[in-house]
């Protein structure tokens, strides 16, 4: 039997050991538990939803209910249970299942449960405003980030990867994509460049505002500063004229359009001329070679 003091010390040591053991293995075990739960739940869901032909008929439209298991499992949310976002589904057959617009709205509403830090910026942005014609936000999280294929932006397949961003934005902004596509920035980005500007480099992402607003990164006041993120120092001329232009005989791209027309005819003219010369020379050589007295 030790003294009172010795017993206290022993209890202290045991407590420390217990805490260390708990801290070392507890969270991992807890996470393991969640992971295990996700595996079990997702196995259940994917038993049907991993089948490529799984379709449903909603209001006369055939909708695919297929989820690419391999892609989902390596996505950012791949270790989370399906029901984490599809909160209203807990039974089979799915009594609470939503479809179409309601489904998209519901799932996108769930993002902010975890991604609280984005909410303030997004709500202020042009994409976060409710579009009265469509009765929904201008762009949901999933419109840019994807659904079951959400990856970090470093992953080449990610919709928000630097080289994929123009295509992602172009899903809605078709005309601007075509205009951006003429630009050198676009060419570099679409050929796999990392240094040139994609859409979000100039327009921002979650905090994106309409060009009419003063705080917008591409408002006339802020454009030179935005360009200077890459181009050393801000210049007034950077804000003058349209960044995105169409190749049309009138408007912002008029000069480029006519330069293109002139050069096209220059190419056609020059090459036709030299091809005619080559043919003339070959014809002369041919007829000379066929003359009986030659060589």
């Amino acid at each position: 039997m030790g003294t009172n003091k010795g017993r206290t010390r022993k209890a202290f040591i045991v407590a420390i050991l217990f805490i260390i053991t708990f801290l070392a293995f507890g969270p991992a075990a807890f996470a393991e538990d969640l992971l295990q739960k996700a595996v079990i739940i997702n196995e259940g869901c994917l038993r049907c939803h991993a089948a490529q032909g799984l379709n449903a008929n909603f209001d006369g439209k055939t909708v695919s209910l297929y989820v690419d298991k391999a892609k989902y499992e390596v996505s950012m949310h791949g270790t989370m249970p399906c029901t984490y976002c599809h909160t209203n589904i807990s039974d089979y057959p799915h009594t609470g299942a939503l479809k179409g617009k309601e489904l998209v709205a519901q799932v996108n509403g769930e993002c902010r449960r975890c991604h609280k830090d984005i909410v303030a910026d997004y709500n202020k942005s042009i994409h976060g405003q409710v579009n009265s014609a469509e009765g929904r936000q201008n762009a949901y999280c999933s419109d840019c980030h994807g659904i079951h294929n959400i990856y970090k932006k470093e992953v080449p397949e990610a919709t928000i990867n630097h080289n994929q961003v123009p295509h992602t934005c172009g899903n809605c902004h078709e005309e601007v994509f075509e205009q951006y596509d003429l630009d050198f920035h676009a060419k570099s980005v679409l050929l796999g460049g990392k240094e040139a500007a994609s859409c979000v480099s100039c327009h921002g992402s979650h905090n994106i505002l309409g060009p009419g607003e003063k705080e917008s990164m591409v408002s006339p006041e802020n454009t030179p500063k935005t360009c200077a993120k890459c181009h050393l120092f801000p210049l007034e001329n950077m804000a003058k004229g349209k960044m995105h232009y169409s190749l049309e005989p009138t408007g912002d791209g008029a000069v480029s359009f006519w330069v293109l027309i002139c050069f096209s005819w220059l190419v056609i003219g020059c090459i036709t001329f030299v091809l005619v010369c080559i043919l003339l020379e070959l014809r002369r050589k041919w007829s000379d070679a066929n003359k009986p007295d030659s060589h």
Binding site: L235, M238, G241, V255, S256, V259, F263, I278
Partner: peptide, 30 residues
């Protein structure tokens, strides 16, 4: 951009690549 507006550089870039295509075709035929 200290001296030229953007439309000028845009148009000049079209001249750059079209003239280059002309040069390439010209060299490899003529």
């Amino acid at each position: 951009f200290q001296y030229f507006p953007k439309w000028f550089v845009d148009a000049y870039r079209w001249a750059h690549s079209d003239e280059a295509v002309l040069a390439v075709v010209f060299i490899f035929t003529w």
